[in-house]
């Protein structure tokens, strides 16, 4: 069976202007308990690659530049 991908608005948003992943920072990717953050090949910045979140917030709390924001996603709102 071929696969389809359904769109889903993700809760974790990274401000590319503030993210310093290009300087080697991996803090949010390192701390995420569910390992859902990755580096984008296009921008070199961190982004939420897998919509598998429990809204725990270490990514936001530990980010050294305040680039990461955890939102309450639409279905929970």
């Amino acid at each position: 069976m071929p696969f389809a991908h359904s769109p889903s608005a993700v809760p974790v948003v990274v401000d590319d202007a503030k993210c310093i992943a290009e300087k080697g920072c991996r803090v949010c990717i390192d701390v995420c308990p569910l390992d859902v953050l990755r580096l984008s090949d296009e921008t070199g910045k961190a982004y939420m690659a897998y919509d598998e979140c429990w809204y725990c917030m270490p990514c936001e709390a530990d980010c050294p530049t305040g680039a990461v924001k955890v939102n309450i996603p639409y279905l929970l709102k």
């Binding site: 308990p33 569910l34 919509d51 598998e52 429990w54 809204y55 996603p73 279905l75 929970l76």
Partner: peptide
């Protein structure tokens, strides 16, 4: 019942 697989209570790991 939220529609997400992971809840908010227990660490889904």
């Amino acid at each position: 019942t939220s529609g997400y697989m992971f809840g908010t209570y227990e660490n889904a790991a």
